[in-house]
């Protein structure tokens, strides 16, 4: 039971971290290497606001405010990246990759210089545990899980039920076709970067409430997100979710059975096998 809970917790983290990256890639065929730092900034939003707002409003409200503020600020940052880098380096995937890699260092350096290299943590907002079928479930974790589900539901609603979301999906599938319907590529790119970056920040705020917040937390998680989106099929959101569940399962089981040190290796081997035998990933469509 405890194992099952751990699998769910880990998978939900993988989903929330990777989904924004997958969305941006799917729509714009661009990888934002600074995605990890956007996530990190979401974590710092929680740390900063819980300092500023402590004793003014309830901690639960701070949590939500941090999520919204982080998402808004980072979302706008994402739009700026779109306008300054992606727009100007259009059709040059390698240049974009390197430019955002550069940006990720910039953001790390800025945080190290202004806040410091040390990891921070915020006091538990929802302390306590629930015992369930012999498993210990921290309430904070359950809250995080709930918000992750809410975030995914919001994304689903946006993409499937709104006109703009439908235009985003159409653009991901056929750019020329979308332009001929009068969809403005600039607007879709800005929307996608806002949403993708905001998702990273929300993920950071959520995880910042249970993990250490530090300048390198994003960089450390990013490579696994790459593995997840490759295995899921780059650009496929459902593939990303499936792969996140798969790796949540594998990594948790390996840790549980004392083979945690092999987890990174096994994950990479799975990625290499998927690339060897199904280069479009589990649920990716052919390019």
């Amino acid at each position: 039971m405890q194992v099952l809970a751990n699998i769910i917790f880990l998978s939900s983290f993988y989903v929330s971290f990777a989904v924004g990256l997958a969305l941006v890639f799917g729509v714009m065929r661009t990888i934002n290497f600074a995605h990890g730092e956007f996530y990190m900034l979401g974590g710092y939003a929680l740390w900063l606001l819980s300092g500023v707002l402590s004793n003014t409003i309830p901690d639960g409200a701070t949590f939500i405010v941090a999520m919204l503020v982080g998402a808004g600020v980072v979302g706008i940052l994402g739009m700026l990246v779109q306008l300054t880098l992606f727009e100007r380096l259009k059709e040059q995937p390698f240049s974009i990759f390197m430019a955002t890699l550069g940006l990720s260092y910039v953001l790390q350096v800025v945080v190290v210089k202004t806040i410091g290299p040390m990891g921070r943590s915020v006091p538990a907002i929802f302390p306590g545990f629930i015992m369930f079928e012999g498993a210990i479930l921290p309430i904070q974790r359950i809250v995080v899980l709930g918000f992750t589900a809410l975030m995914m539901a919001g994304l689903w609603y946006f993409l499937m039920r709104t006109d703009l979301g439908r235009a985003v999906r159409a653009t991901a599938q056929n750019k020329t076709g979308a332009m001929l319907q009068g969809i403005s590529m600039g607007k879709i790119a800005l929307t996608t970067m806002f949403v993708g970056s905001a998702l990273a920040a929300i993920s950071g705020t959520l995880m910042g409430s249970v993990l250490m917040i530090g300048p390198f937390m994003g960089a450390e998680a990013l490579w696994r997100a790459f593995i997840i989106i490759i295995v899921g099929g780059i650009g496929s959101l459902s593939g990303t979710v499936v792969a996140a569940l798969l790796f949540g399962l594998i990594d948790t089981l390996m840790t549980t059975f004392g083979a945690g040190k092999f987890a990174a290796m096994v994950d990479a081997i799975i990625m290499l096998l998927v690339l060897s035998f199904m280069p479009n990933g589990l649920l990716g469509s052919r390019e």
Binding site: R169, A170, Q173, N174, G177, S285
Partner: peptide, 8 residues
Amino acid sequence: GRELFPRI
């Protein structure tokens, strides 16, 4: 070539 959106 029609340029439809194949997966919607």
